[in-house]
């Protein structure tokens, strides 16, 4: 009996030992998996697998995958996660559930059989902490507007993305918006910049170069800092004079040389200071004419902007792209009215 008990005790011990060992092995495997997840992104995720086919990739996402991580992996651009989400009609990645990553050009121009996409391009000028007027927006109002964009899932895109969309090269998230700030006022740096940064947004600064370095204007060092943090700096001409006023008393050649100077000097100055391409132009007062447009094209501007209110479809003339000025005296509802992202069409 004693022997029997001893035997039983020994067996129990071994069973316990085996269980412990088994548990330990499980823990080890889990730990390993965690380490992989933590240290190797999805690259070594044991769950992750992919199958490259003609025109698409079939993916079994790993536990750490998100649409953005998959977009980064397959498109080289994490901002295109929305495309995979939309194509798969999923709002989140489910580990292990196969997804299709489309490699064909789809959703171009946001053109569907009953609508097309439009992109609001907003224009701001000055900002203030304590007052507002027509061209000056209060910091709290600007914050509220950016908050609205964030809460309503707007993607703030840059001008390259906008023009790629217009050239039918790349699709955009359904709710995309461009933020531009004209002139180069110091308040853009002191007030708008921190607010935009806090939301993870960037904007395009259309500066007129004669103004930069002035008392109420930004300094080149400040513009450079913004550029280094993802802001785009483009031309608003050299002196902000209207490009369409032709003085009949002066020779036509004088007018033309004025145009060349306005477009060329600003472009060169920006490129010299920031060591980047200056490829977009905002006409002062939004005014332009055929000659100015031809000149902008000749000088290598990829697109140019007016202040004609309304969101932009892909087929808009690239040299008269409309923008909606956001005035300091407009309320949130008026701001929202500028955010139309789709236009219905009725093909008969």
């Amino acid at each position: 009996m004693r022997r029997y008990c001893e035997k039983k005790r020994t067996s129990l011990f071994w069973i316990l030992l085996i269980l412990c060992a088994a548990l330990q092995s499980c823990t080890l495997i889990d730990k390993k998996a965690d380490e992989k997840i933590l240290h190797t992104f999805a690259e070594k995720d044991p769950l992750f697998s992919k199958l490259k086919m003609d025109g698409f990739i079939m993916v079994r996402p790993g536990v750490t995958d998100t649409f953005n991580s998959l977009a980064a992996r397959f498109f080289g651009d994490k901002n295109k996660g929305w495309l995979i989400a939309k194509f798969n009609r999923q709002d989140r990645v489910i580990a292990g559930k196969p997804l299709i990553v489309p490699l064909e050009p789809i959703y171009l121009g946001g053109l569907e059989n009953d609508s097309y996409q439009t992109v609001p391009v907003l224009v701001y000028h000055q900002f203030s902490n304590d007052h507002s007027d027509k061209m000056t927006i209060k910091a709290e109002d600007f914050f509220e507007q950016m908050l609205y964009l964030k809460e309503n899932d707007f993607s703030v895109i840059d001008l390259d993305q906008l023009i790629d969309f217009m050239e039918f090269r790349a699709p955009l998230p359904e709710k995309s918006v461009v933020i531009t700030i004209d002139d180069g006022w110091l308040s853009a740096y002191e007030i708008a910049y921190p607010i935009l940064k806090s939301f993870g947004y960037s904007a395009t600064l259309f500066v007129y170069t004669d103004f930069i370095g002035g008392e109420k204007a930004m300094k080149w060092s400040q513009i450079k800092e913004m550029a280094q943090n993802g802001f785009n700096v483009q031309s608003h001409t050299k002196s902000h004079q209207s490009l369409t006023i032709i003085h009949e008393s002066a020779p036509f050649e004088e007018y033309f040389r004025f145009l060349v100077r306005e477009l060329e000097v600003s472009k060169n100055t920006i490129e010299d200071y920031l060591n980047t391409d200056c490829r977009y132009l905002a006409y002062p007062f939004g005014e332009t004419n055929e000659l100015v447009i031809s000149l902008a094209k000749k000088m290598g501007y990829r697109a140019a902007f007016t202040v004609n209110r309304g969101s932009v479809p892909f087929f808009e003339n690239r040299y008269t792209i409309g923008r909606s000025v956001i005035y300091g005296d407009s309320d949130l509802d008026q701001f929202i009215n500028n955010l139309s992202c789709q236009k219905a069409i009725n093909f008969k």
Partner: peptide, 13 residues
């Protein structure tokens, strides 16, 4: 899945 776990990345479906 056992199939996936046994392979590194190019796993089959």
């Amino acid at each position: 899945s056992d199939k996936v776990a046994l392979q590194d990345e190019e796993s089959l479906f």
